[in-house]
Amino acid sequence: MDDERISLNLQVNGTAYHVDDAWYFETLLSVLRYRLGLTGTKQSCETGSCGACTVLLDGRPINSCVALAADVQGNVTTIEGYSPADGSLTPLQEALVAAGDVQCGYCLPGMVLAGSAFIADHPNATDDEVREGMCGNLCRCTAYGSLITGIREASKR
């Protein structure tokens, strides 16, 4: 039935997208990955617990898995839009690499986006501030020590 589907207008990484056959209950995560092909945003817990699906909405990190796509207004930034187009790394990404915070990598797009918002608000962050500020991102490889080092170092730049 036609009325089972809805149309969406989303602003993602500076590009306006129109989706005209979305399910009304579809999440932002689902639209990003399966309709727009932006698979850098990871699908994991789907209950807003793990942070793998973190994107920025007007600069603030949110869980795209518990955001209704129909209810998203504003500019969405995914890891594809955050990372420099020439393939280089941002200072935050360099700091995470230097700290050795890359194992399986599945949590990293969410970690990087949440971390970018965190360091913007917390210059020269303490370890405790990093622990609290990054509590919305789980790493099942448990690379938390190097995450704290990387985010802390990046907050100094």
Binding site: G48, G51, L57, R60, I62, A114, F118, E132, C135, N137
Partner: peptide, 12 residues
């Protein structure tokens, strides 16, 4: 509020 869920959830 600091103990309520995560920054991502609190933003929404």
């Amino acid at each position: 509020l600091r103990s309520l869920a995560t920054p991502q959830i609190r933003n929404r």
